[in-house]
Simulated assay, not measured.
Amino acid sequence: GPISRCEKGELLDPVVYEYSGVNEASKEKSGGAIQRVFLHSMFGYPHTSCGCFEALAFYIPEVDGIGIVDRDYTGETPFGIPFSRMAGQAGGGVQVEGLVGMAIEYIRSPKFFIADGGIRRVVWMPSKIKEEVKDAIPEDLYDKIATEKDAVDLESLKKFLEERGHPVVERWKEMEEEVEEEEIAEEVPQAVQIPAQVSGMTIPLGGGMKIILENAKIHIDKVIIRRKEKQ
């Protein structure tokens, strides 16, 4: 049948849980189409999905979070599309970054998308599922995860997360700071020559000797600007 035993083999990456045995089995069973598999990550080389999965995990780039929707939920996700349309994109035995089939029970696993931030990266799920796995959600996070009762689109989802102080909001701030630093780096040339007129500068040489610069011209080859670290 389609289900067969697979030896995990050597652990190649302890962050995403990539195993040599799983990779070898994937290559063999897929005829070489699948070369690598990350067991506990939605990104890079996620596991494939056949189409009979109980639920889907989907990445929401607009809020940098993970959403979960099950096949019993007939409403729309914050993307404005239902489970059925998402399932068509994820199924078929292909690797789709940011869209993978899963079981609801997987949420209770300590390795639940551990490489991607785990349960604290989850920002949306149907209220029925949220209640069902309530025991697996940290108490301080439970009220910060939105459901269809709180957010019906991306705009309302982002507003909800900001108001509740979801952990992903801190990720937004970090990403904004990184963008600002990149913009500063682009604006400042890596190497510039700035002529400067110097008068009266003293350079100690040791042994009681010193050099005094009068009307000297100095060329600065490089200016480095660093952001002051927050206290």
Rank of each mutant, 00 (worst) to 15 (best):
L11A: 07
L11E: 09
D13G: 07
V15T: 14
S20G: 08
N23G: 04
K29S: 09
K29Y: 14
G31H: 11
R36M: 09
F38D: 05
L39W: 01
Y45W: 12
S49Q: 07
C50P: 00
F53A: 11
L56K: 00
A57H: 04
Y59C: 06
P61W: 08
V69F: 06
I81K: 12
P82E: 11
R85H: 14
R85L: 15
Q95K: 05
V96F: 10
A103G: 15
I104L: 15
I104Q: 11
E105H: 10
Y106Q: 11
R108K: 15
F113K: 00
I119R: 00
R120P: 02
R121Q: 11
V123K: 01
W124V: 02
A136I: 00
A136F: 01
I137E: 06
Y142G: 09
K144G: 00
E148T: 06
E148W: 09
K149P: 03
D153A: 03
L154R: 10
K158L: 01
L161Y: 00
R164G: 00
G165W: 06
H166Q: 10
P167A: 02
W172R: 05
E186A: 13
V188P: 06
S199K: 05
M201L: 15
T202S: 10
P204N: 06
P204C: 13
M209L: 15
I211H: 07
K217C: 02
H219I: 04
D221H: 11
V223K: 04
I224P: 00
I224R: 11
